[in-house]
Amino acid sequence: MKTLAELNAIREKMKNQINNRESVTSSDIRVVVGMATCGIAAGAKPVFAAFNEEVAKRNLTNVKVTQAGCLGMCKLEPMVEVYVPGKEKVTYIKVTAEAAKQIISDHIVNGNPVLKYVIGNE
């Protein structure tokens, strides 16, 4: 059973780390997950969680995962937009938690968008 006492230890550990993760800078890669009613109903919650988990696991400090409202095409939700500085935005549709992990490894880490989830390729 977790207690609040453990939080003190985590805080001390984190204070000793150089942490610049709070602010979004222009060199950051942004992953935006649509989290309006349509997105949530289609499964955006586990997708958002999977992106965060994968980013934390790989310690990708230059990747920011954020939430947005409706991205405009409800029937294609869960939708995810990936903004890599200097590159064109990539919009993914019908994303699953598994797809999220693949997007992180193939697109974010290795620079190759996962075409089968890119809008227009469905």
Binding site: K2, L7, K13, R21
Partner: peptide, 24 residues
């Protein structure tokens, strides 16, 4: 509010803290 007072400036949205809070 209680969590933030313990965190003393460490961002609550950091992944380590979020993982801990979910478990808590």
């Amino acid at each position: 509010k209680e969590i933030k007072s313990i965190l003393d400036g460490v961002p609550i949205e950091s992944s380590e803290i979020i993982t801990y809070l979910e478990g808590l």
